[in-house]
């Protein structure tokens, strides 16, 4: 895959705050990329630097190998969909979508054709004469999308694209975004704080922490093999247990459990996904634990168990429905898991 955008050692400070710390990143042509992080992770700053609304203090930003860090936003072939959508309230939907084409000097007839095509692409045919305030949140989001896509950008930036939509609309809109990305062939770079959104939509995900990339990779790899405690916790649900590497594996005092698997000497914690843990009648040795069910919550396809371990830590266990009736609150249980599912974390 050919690199479209490359960020090299991008650093940005706001007063005493280091927003981006010598960050490196390469976006390939036509990929759907997600910048995932909490508030203050630097993800929005990075997006604004790519769009041209902020200038990095140092570092290089290359589009097709050309330095663009000093290029003003109006001269960049990059478009952005804003979290608030930023639709022009005094213009009709069609005029909103045509705004960029007007600025580019596209002829009126051609602009009208392209606007109609863009509105059709986001299923808003016939909405051209409406004003933004006459639209629902989902419709506004699609106008914003059409307004960016009509410019045929090679790189589209999306700031929390699903953030303002209600739950029912998010899933459908997510699929539509992916379809639009495939259709247009543009590279999409999305900023989100929602790990499910990032994992579901993106081809590759970069997890940001403190202005640096904590981990970068395909969603499945990041989910299955988090590299650090932060990533494991941020992606949610994984059990992260502190301890130290020992001769026979990894000893976690807080769990009172010994983990066996591919444990490097510098391992400081292990991650274990709830759905990888099985409730068994009996087991002994490494990769087993005995505990008491503190609470159980039925979630449809599984039951989430909170199991208190002898060391005091609470383990989250997803008990699948096909494994039979789950243990109840107060039951003593024996747990086990495969060595392959123990993820060693070095930091």
């Amino acid at each position: 895959m050919k690199t479209l955008l490359r960020a090299e050692a991008i650093t940005k400070r706001f007063g005493p705050t280091l927003a981006l710390d010598a960050l490196d990143l390469a976006i390939a042509e036509g990929e759907f990329f997600a910048l995932l992080g909490g508030s203050g992770s630097g993800k929005s700053t990075l997006l604004r630097i790519i769009a041209g609304f902020e200038t990095p203090d140092s570092g290089r930003l290359l589009l097709d190998g050309t330095e663009i860090a000093a290029t003003p936003p109006w001269a960049r072939p990059i478009n952005m969909m804003f979290q608030s959508y930023a639709l022009f309230p005094h213009l009709s939907v069609a005029d909103n979508v045509a705004y960029g084409l007007r600025r580019a000097g596209v002829k009126r007839a051609e602009a009208a054709t392209r606007v109609a095509a863009a509105l059709a692409m986001v299923h808003l045919d016939g909405f051209g004469t409406r004003r933004p305030h006459q639209l629902s949140g989902g419709q506004r989001q699609r106008v914003a999308l059409a307004r960016s896509l009509v410019m045929r950008p090679r790189l589209l930036l999306l700031d929390e694209p699903l953030g303002a939509l209600d739950a029912g609309l998010r899933e459908r809109t997510g699929f539509e975004l992916r379809a639009l990305q495939r259709e247009t062939g543009a590279a999409f770079v999305m900023v989100t704080h929602d790990q499910e959104e990032a994992l579901a939509l993106a081809d590759r995900v970069a997890v940001l922490e403190g202005g640096r990339i904590a981990q970068l990779g395909p969603p499945r790899a990041i989910y299955e093999r988090p590299a650090t405690r932060f990533v494991a916790r941020f992606l949610g649900a994984a059990n992260v247990l502190e301890g130290r590497a020992a001769a026979e594996g990894f000893d976690s005092a807080e769990a009172g459990v010994t983990f066996a698997g591919a444990i490097a000497p510098d391992t400081v914690a292990v991650a274990l996904r709830p759905e990888r843990i099985r409730v068994v009648p009996s087991a002994e040795g490494p990769n087993t634990a005995h505990g008491v069910v503190e609470d159980a919550a039925f979630r449809g396809d599984d039951t989430l168990l909170l199991v208190r371990l002898p060391g005091g830590a609470v383990l989250r266990v997803a008990h699948a429905e096909e494994d039979g009736a789950p243990p109840a609150r107060g039951d003593a249980v024996t747990l086990t898991w495969d060595a392959d599912d123990v993820v060693a974390l070095a930091s």
Binding site: F53, A75, F82, A86, R103
Partner: peptide, 18 residues
Amino acid sequence: LDPTLGEAAADLGARPAT
């Protein structure tokens, strides 16, 4: 005035005077 309106216009190719 929402400052992102101006940013959106800049993003779509408008210079400050425009």
